[in-house]
Design a protein around this nucleic acid. Structure first.
Length: 116
DNA sequence: GCGCTGACGCGAT
DNA sequence: CATCGCGCCAGCG
């Protein structure tokens, strides 16, 4: 059967975290894992997405922590992801996306919102 | 049971 | 800012 237990609570949380990413926005694998309550499981997130069968799942909004597309440049998955992101208005340059910093909140807390 | 591989992450160079 | 190397976890031969 499924390599990954689709009914596993961990997997369910991961999928939920992925679906929680708003349209036109992106998130990192590690970020998703963290939101799912599974720190250090970024690779697990990747594996879950690889095995997903839900066309409604916004898997294309998931990128590496540095904003880079996880697929090898030029590969089918790569092009498809770029295509979907651009369709949502996300600027993709050279296979990468400007990430709004995972810790903007912390930065604001330390330096102040008007510091920028 | 062991070792390789991968849609990862982060610090060091 | 681009690369390299090492660490982490889970699936598969």
């Amino acid at each position: 059967m499924a390599a990954l237990s689709a009914d596993s609570p961990a997997v369910a949380r991961i999928l939920a975290a992925v679906r929680a990413v708003p349209r036109g926005q992106v998130a990192g694998y590690g970020q998703i894992a963290r939101r799912a309550g599974l720190p250090r499981r970024a690779r697990l997130v990747a594996r879950v997405l690889a095995g997903n069968a839900d066309p409604a799942l916004p898997w294309h909004r998931i990128l590496r922590s540095d904003g880079r597309i996880a697929f090898p440049p030029g590969s089918p998955g790569f092009r498809e992801q770029v295509r979907r992101l651009r369709a949502e208005g996300v600027a993709v340059e050279n296979g990468r996306v400007r990430m709004p910093r995972a810790d903007t909140d912390l930065d604001a807390a330390l330096w102040g919102p008007d510091r920028a």
